[in-house]
Design a protein around this nucleic acid. Structure first.
Lengths: 110, 110
DNA sequence: TTAGAATGCCTACCCATTCTAGGCATGGCC
DNA sequence: GGCCATGCCTAGAATGGGTAGGCATTCTAA
């Protein structure tokens, strides 16, 4: 997983994490890989960004976490999207869409 | 100009300012209004965000400024996009497009 | 067998940018 | 005269992502 991507914009990471978890519970390290794959290898999330973000997101009640073992038998902390998190994802996606639309309008403007 | 919009994402403001100025030189207060209009009244830029951003952008050589009088005879500081600023706008638009594309990929992913 | 890469978690600190909340001056309009 | 719009600016807070570490375990290749 080599790095070939630009930095994220501040404010997009939560949405990406929630989106990744909407496909099923996953541990932190796996979230990074899932975002990488889902985005066609365009989005790289750094561990130093992810773990604080997961903490933040859990505090807000959008995910819950539990230690478990993964398929290879290693201990890992699995995060699950909560109902509230699913709603939040919708909110953030809608807000993202509005911004993308607004910027598109700017592009068209003469 | 009532406020009916979400906050910008950190990192998008420069692009918006440069884009607004790509339609012609303008003073600060006018940039806010032009962004508001170009975006179909979706994007509100606060003065407290704009003026520091303009200072930053001028330091980087992307705009130049000069005091002048506007059409109503008031003194105002007019900003003009430089060659370097025009290039920067292209860079930021391309990077924006990449991010939008990557997020779209995330949306499609199963 | 042993070194290093990959997997997995975490923290402290830095840094950039945006917002809030003010201040100030001028001009137009009721 | 008073108020709103126009026009510029600043200080400080808050946010959140990045850099750069640390640590433990497991797998793989030399």
């Amino acid at each position: 997983m080599t790095k070939a991507t630009a930095d994220l914009l501040q404010g997009t990471l939560d949405m990406l994490i929630l989106k990744a978890l909407s496909l099923g519970a996953l541990h932190g390290y796996g979230i990074i890989q899932r975002i990488w794959q889902m985005s066609d290898e365009m989005l790289t999330v750094e561990q130093g960004s992810l773990y604080p973000a997961l903490y933040r997101i859990e505090q807000r009640g959008w995910v819950s976490s539990a230690w478990d073992t993964n398929e290879t038998g290693r201990r890992a902390k699995f995060y699950t999207l909560t109902k509230s998190g699913r709603r939040q994802l919708e909110v953030e996606e809608a807000s993202w869409d509005r911004l993308v639309l607004a910027v598109a309008k700017m592009r068209e403007a003469t």
